[in-house]
Every structure is written in structure tokens, then in C-alpha cells.
């Protein structure tokens, strides 16, 4: 079942769309923001509301990199590993994070706090190596900056 908030937000997108299915991506993002990820049940709930089949909607959901069809941590650490960041050392940034968090690429810490997610170019190439966490861009990363960043994230929810 969609929550009232979810339904209201999706409906406000539908108001300026020529067809309900046109807001599929917006709807997936709204629900993901509320629940952290898109479960099979979420697909069914959204599909029903948009008058789509679940398969049709899942085809959309699985196409996009930032729709999570598996649970992720409360903070998804998106590390850019495209060309400029790679030249500037994104491999070692990923290694450091993997060691600190004790998870591999795409893995989530057992406490459900962090997911380590390598991503395509973040458009911050002049600040490489870069990462985005909770919508915030972190550039010119090195070991000290990563520790500072993790420290701040941990302090947010002790």
C-alpha cells in the first residue's frame, strides 16, 4: 500500500502529465526516498496506482542506475570510478572505503548504515577523485578526507 504522503506526491506529478505512466520514474523515486529501496511489493503498489502492469514498471525500474531493487544502507556512498577520477586514484579510494566499511563494491554494512556503490561519472572531474553521499559532493578525496567524511556520517546517527 502506498502511504498518504507517497500517493499525494505521485498525484501532484500526475496532474501535469499527459498520462499516468509518464510519472513512473518520479513515482519510483518518491517511494524510494520514503522506503530506501524499491521492493517487489512497492513495484506492485506503484504499478496499480499508475495503471501499469508490474512487469512494465519493473522494466523501467531496472533500467535506471539509481533505482535500487535491493535494500541499501541508510547512507549510499557513491564513489565515482569513471575516467578522470580513475586517473586521479579512485581505485585506492574504493579500496580504503572497502577496508574501513568491511564490505566489497555494492556491499552494505551489517548494521544497515552504509552501502559502497561505485558509480559513473559524477560530473566533478575537476575535483577528482570525487564521491557523493546523501546528496552532498565530496571532492579531492584522500584517506584523511574519507575518514573525516565517515566520522561525520557516523556522528549523525551514533
Amino acid at each position: 500500500m502506498l502511504s498518504d504522503t507517497e500517493r499525494q506526491e505521485i498525484d501532484s506529478e500526475i496532474r501535469h502529465a499527459p498520462a499516468k505512466s509518464a510519472v513512473a520514474i518520479d513515482a519510483l523515486k518518491i517511494v524510494q526516498r520514503e522506503r530506501g529501496w524499491i521492493s517487489g511489493d512497492a513495484i506492485k503498489d506503484i504499478a496499480r496506482h499508475l495503471e501499469m502492469t508490474p512487469d512494465e514498471l519493473d522494466g523501467v525500474a531496472t533500467f535506471y542506475n539509481r533505482i535500487f531493487r535491493k535494500p541499501v544502507g541508510r547512507h549510499v556512498i557513491e564513489v565515482c570510478d569513471s575516467i578522470s577520477c580513475w586517473v586521479m586514484g579512485s581505485d585506492s579510494i574504493k579500496d580504503i572505503l572497502a577496508r574501513r566499511l568491511g564490505v566489497g563494491e555494492g556491499g552494505t554494512t551489517p548494521d544497515g548504515r552504509f552501502t559502497l556503490l561505485p558509480v559513473d561519472c559524477l560530473g566533478a572531474c575537476h575535483r577528482a577523485p570525487a564521491a557523493v553521499v546523501d546528496g552532498e559532493l565530496h571532492g579531492e578525496l584522500d584517506e584523511a578526507k574519507l575518514d573525516e567524511m565517515l566520522g561525520e556520517l557516523r556522528a549523525k546517527e551514533p
Binding site: S82, I83, S84, D120, C121, G123, A124, C125, H126
Partner: peptide, 11 residues
């Protein structure tokens, strides 16, 4: 949709 690797001008 600025996603061409190496590109950050529209940002």
C-alpha cells in the same frame, strides 16, 4: 543530463 565522463561544464 550531463553524464559524458570528463564533463562538468553544465554543472
Amino acid at each position: 543530463d550531463e553524464m559524458e565522463p570528463g564533463t562538468f561544464k553544465d554543472r
